[in-house]
């Protein structure tokens, strides 16, 4: 690749002003940040909304506590409705407890596990608690009490509002972008350029800046998270959601641009 080739490629794929491309890049950067902040919630909507969760408390009062804990897990593993048993970090439990109790002897704090079941499945708490108590006295499974309704409606509203805002700004930005390109499109058409080539070249240049905006948001958030606190968004369980939303954001931007370009080209003789 030499200078001339890059220059020709620039004319072909980046016919608009640099500011237009940067504007789109920054817009995608900020909207990606909104999505990233909402990833745990989106992950919940996509994968966990209809799954039932319980809390298993295992007190550390017995000498052979570890063995008995393993026995409890073995018992739970026989239940085919249980998907996972995940330990809740001690730091998180202490933080929550400190809000309600002033002095805590950390050794008294039981180990806490989140038990997740398949969609719409429930545990027979009385029966399971009886079994668990027989293995280790004081161990207990509790129904996870979360005010889902309030949590969901607030988040749904914010998410819906930001998506609406995103779509509105996107449409305005892309209409403005294509409007500025109208002369270029007209001329190119007069010089014999095919619609297919025009759509391909212009969207290629546009997508490059779009990727730049989206991926730089994800990379900078990941960098921030890994350097300043323990990761809570870029965790393995959120990866699927992250990939889905990167794909969705790119597709929405791309399809809207193609639609706007096609519409404009159709009006040029």
């Amino acid at each position: 690749m030499n200078y001339k080739f890059i220059k020709y490629l620039g004319i072909k794929c980046f016919p608009s002003n640099l500011l237009d491309y940067l504007g789109h890049c920054i817009f995608n950067f900020f909207f990606s940040l909104v999505i990233i902040i909402n990833i745990p919630f989106l992950n919940n909507i996509l994968f966990h909304e209809h799954k039932t969760s319980y809390i298993l408390l295992v007190p550390k009062i017995s000498n052979n506590f570890e063995e008995k804990k393993d026995l409890i897990f073995s018992g739970l593993s026989l239940n085919t409705n249980i998907i996972s048993v995940r330990e809740v970090e001690k730091k998180i439990i202490l933080e929550k407890l400190k809000k309600k109790i002033e002095l805590i002897d950390e050794d008294l704090v039981p180990e806490v596990f989140e038990v997740t079941l398949k969609k719409n499945k429930k545990l027979d708490l009385e029966k399971e608690n009886k079994k668990v108590d027989e293995v280790l006295q004081g161990a207990q499974i509790l129904d996870k009490k979360i005010d889902y309704h309030k949590y969901n409606s607030d988040n749904y509203f914010l998410l819906g509002f930001s998506v609406f805002l995103f779509l509105s700004i996107l449409v305005v930005l892309q209409i403005d972008f294509v409007k500025k390109l109208k002369v270029f499109l007209e001329k190119s058409r007069n010089f014999g350029a095919k619609d297919r080539d025009l759509l391909y070249n212009i969207s290629l240049g546009y997508l490059l800046f779009q990727f730049l905006g989206i991926f730089s948001a994800y990379f900078s958030f990941n960098f921030f998270e890994s350097n300043f606190k323990k990761p809570s968004i870029f965790t393995v369980e959120n990866y699927e959601t992250i990939i889905i939303f990167i794909f969705l954001q790119n597709m929405i931007c791309y399809l809207n641009l193609i639609f706007t370009l096609r519409y404009t080209l159709r009006r040029i003789f």
Binding site: Y8, K12, F191
Partner: peptide
Amino acid sequence: ILPLIMTN
């Protein structure tokens, strides 16, 4: 050069 670029 635009006409030449546009006709590949």
